[in-house]
Design a protein around this nucleic acid. Sequence first.
RNA 1: GGUGGAGUCGCAUAGCGGCCGAGUGCGCACGCCUCGAAAGCGUGUGAGGGGCGACCCUCCGUGGGUUCAAAUCCCACCUCCACCGCCA
Length: 422
Amino acid sequence: MIDLRALRDDPDRLRASQRARGEDESVVDRLLDLDSRHRAALARFESLRAEQKSVGKSVSRASADEREALLARAKGLAADVKSAEAEAEALSAELAALLRTVPNIVEAEAPVGGVDDFVVVDQVGTPREFDFTPRDHLELGEMLGAIDTDRGAKVSGARFYFLTGVGAMLELGLLNLAMQRAAANGFTPVIPPVLVKPETMEGTGFLGEHSAEVYHLPADDLYLVGTSEVPLAGYHANEILPADMLPTRYVGWSSCFRREAGSYGKDTRGIIRVHQFNKVEMFVYAHPDQAHEEHLRLLGWEREMLDLLEVPYRVVDIATGDLGTSAARKYDCEAWVPSQGCYRELTSTSNCTDFQSRRLNIRYRDADGKPRFAATLNGTLATTRWIVAILENHQREDGSVVVPEALRPFVGRDVLEPVTKK
RNA sequence: GGUGGAGUCGCAUAGCGGCCGAGUGCGCACGCCUCGAAAGCGUGUGAGGGGCGACCCUCCGUGGGUUCAAAUCCCACCUCCACCGCCA
């Protein structure tokens, strides 16, 4: 949620942001209009209410003969107050509803444009030259006895899979390495709930344009999270954090659930795009003035992980039109996938500034003792999808896969050997 | 799932439907006292919102209701505690 008072002072800032996102600019004037009507209604209600209170008080002190008249007046006022309050509340609800549809204001430095207008910030490593035809991750996974999508489909349906044997070990190793690195960097490890209440899901901004992506359990009115960003953002909801607590860094490990609605026919093979996967996610509560620097630090930690896994990747500055609702700026790291001959997203780090904090009411006490909204940031340290990049980039002609050095202690072996020839 | 109890301004507690429209203790901050400290004394001490301002409004788990007036009465829900049952 954006800051209404800041909007009053500088409406052009939101206009520019909406333009950059390719979103409706007229919302600015509708907001300003609703806001002033709301404040007028509120003033009306408040003065009537003040009068009602003072008249009400005088009722008890009044003599018997004054009483009748006062009571009549008080009754009249009660009715007026009720309708004035209803009017103010209606406008307030309308304003809040409109405000909820407005995405975060983008960082001025973010590249402007759509999905394809990202800027490549850096490129690390070069795609490997194969002197044989590289296999894709699913073929490798099946040879290694690591990935079983047939049985995944049998048991749970399309976009589900089993990780078995070295596949399971590889995933655990990857996630453990990520947790271990994050802990070493000062993050507090967290295993959060993966079912959350509506207000938590709403607060993180996932029930807007992405609501079709989210699993909902109607019997309990709970949502399955698509990332541990959701419970980690809710963790400090409705709290005022002491100033010296910032930045507070958490690293969450959770299963993630996504409906992948509307992606029929896209990435149907293997485990690139699935309904359930595991993810290690960094989540930081920061001082708004330090959010940008913290964002770059998160990117740095993501790159450290990718470096450890020895896969070629590039860093991409996402364009304004492709930013999520809550993000003011977003960097993705994309790893080279040999079988596809292109880079695919492995990490994503967003600076949500105080957008989520406003919705979730997450504050900190500033130096002057006043509560202010904190900034929130998130970034990926490992996901199931990384297995794709690891298998494909480190494969050998016979279908075996060399385990990256850093992963070996966690996986327990140097090379994954095929269990079946194909 | 059942029965009983409880949810008040950081913590702990008080609170007859209006006259305290939230009191007291602790904690905290500042001041006095002191060579310095402790103790003692004094003052202050929540959040959100509106108004140029004086000020005003909202919030006593949440949401409804009764009333001129509700922390206080009624209804529903949520959470916590205790015990019982069921499952592991």
